[in-house]
């Protein structure tokens, strides 16, 4: 299989504001680069087939399923993961709202759900329920039935709109 020319590639990203660099195989997927190479295991791998959205991260501010992006494709770009939400020991308004509204049960989908929600509340903090449901339709939750997730995102959006803290 190895014909001797499979190059390793250098991937340098700015992740949660910090510059990180590593040499990996070109076939390394972004989710595994973030988890295994950079050691940021907050990003989860659920289905690994572009369905569940647990691995959602922000690439230049835009939600992508990191199991379906090559790490090398993020080279030179900005990444945000769930680890970047909390600042100085203070939960992000989204995290606080998920806490307050019981927006998670097992928590597996939560990192992806939070990142999708982050992009939404930045763009449209006062989104209505339909818009929120549509925005998170690529993030599957098998516990909550989504009611409390939607409530949490609405609350966070209101907080963000009031404080511009996002």
């Amino acid at each position: 299989m190895d014909n001797g020319k499979r190059q390793s590639v250098t991937v340098r990203v700015q992740i949660n504001g910090e510059t990180r660099e590593a040499a990996v195989e070109s076939r390394t997927l972004l989710a595994y680069f973030i988890r295994d190479t950079l050691g940021l295991t907050g990003t989860h791998v659920g289905c690994d087939t572009t369905s569940c959205g647990a691995c959602t991260v922000l690439l230049d501010g835009v939600p992508v399923k990191s199991c379906t992006v090559l790490a090398v494709q993020a080279h030179g770009h900005q990444l945000e993961t769930v680890e970047g939400l909390e600042q100085d020991g203070k939960l992000h308004p989204l995290q606080q709202a998920f806490w307050d509204n019981h927006g998670l049960q097992c928590g597996f989908c939560t990192p992806g759900m939070l990142m999708t929600a982050l992009a939404l509340v930045r763009q449209e903090p006062l989104a209505d329920e339909e818009t929120i449901r549509r925005a998170i339709s690529g993030n599957l939750c098998r516990c909550t039935g989504y009611m409390n997730i939607v409530k949490a995102i609405r609350q966070a959006g209101r907080t963000v709109a009031q404080t511009q803290e996002v």
Binding site: M1, K5, S26, R27, Y32, D48, L70, V72
Partner: peptide, 11 residues
């Protein structure tokens, strides 16, 4: 899951 190895170019 991960792909077979390949050479990568980004022109």
């Amino acid at each position: 899951m991960f792909p077979n190895p390949f050479d990568y170019y980004a022109p």
